[in-house]
Design a protein around this nucleic acid. Sequence first.
DNA 1: GACCATAATGCAAAAGCTTCTCATTTCTCT
DNA 2: AGAGAAATGAGAAGCTTTTGCATTATGGTC
Lengths: 137, 137
Amino acid sequence: METQDLKKVGLKVTLPRMKILELLQNADQRHLSAEDIYKLLLEADEEIGLATIYRVLTQFETAGLVTRHHFETGQAVFELERGEHHDHLVCIKCGKVEEFKNETIETCQDKIASEAGYRITDHSLIIYGVCPECQKK
Amino acid sequence: METQDLKKVGLKVTLPRMKILELLQNADQRHLSAEDIYKLLLEADEEIGLATIYRVLTQFETAGLVTRHHFETGQAVFELERGEHHDHLVCIKCGKVEEFKNETIETCQDKIASEAGYRITDHSLIIYGVCPECQKK
DNA sequence: GACCATAATGCAAAAGCTTCTCATTTCTCT
DNA sequence: AGAGAAATGAGAAGCTTTTGCATTATGGTC
Ligand SMILES: [Mn+2]
Ligand SMILES: [Mn+2]
Ligand SMILES: [Zn+2]
Ligand SMILES: [Zn+2]
């Protein structure tokens, strides 16, 4: 029940917030831009302003419900936070996004940061390439 | 002699291009945004339009003279290409950028991409953290 | 060195994404 | 149901980057 998720993080339960959360949970595509969400909601006859979508996504991000990524598409994409960190493999032809997790890389990163004396707060690893389907064309 | 660099890649030798290239070679800070370059040139009494700077940087990128990065600062940063790939460690407090290269990570990335059937074209690994100096404050 | 065709520049306007303002609506709590 | 507080929608504004077009500079030729 999503209503709980919102209350838990101190956000009022409103229609826009419910619909956006629902969409993030159920959409085929896990990684969505604000505009994607806007259009998908329109298709479902839920007319929610783009400004609200941006506002809500930022609130969700602050609340730890979603994560924002900056792939090189010009627009940020958001995905529901599932508690397990992962990185991304993005097809430059069709935009498909795959996820992966690699302990060796994570460990190396921590080592690099600590050797440089940095207190690491975050990282972003994105591999760009052409997916198997797009290679055939 | 920078004039050669430009001719080599098929670009006319113009004052803006020379000045921008020179700045990228000599600036204290290796990673500069278009606006940074604009302002530094102004300080040096070289009034070059921002549009030209963007255009030239894109041409330099296409020609392989510079590399463009998207740190999460809202603006792209550019650095002179030195032929050796590396990744970045960015201080979220002061904006300092450090470079590193890690063979283990590079190898893992290639393995991940090929296991997913992707033909890798590029990747971006950015570690965000707080640098030693900023930790003291 | 002057000339010409072509390419590059500067400026302002436009575009693309995101945030903000403020009047109106919706929630929550009683 | 009603009051107070918070959220929404619509449009304006903000930022970074790109584009159109008139003007200027460059590189090759005579
Ligand atoms: Mn993901
Ligand atoms: Mn670098
Ligand atoms: Zn693809
Ligand atoms: Zn710092």
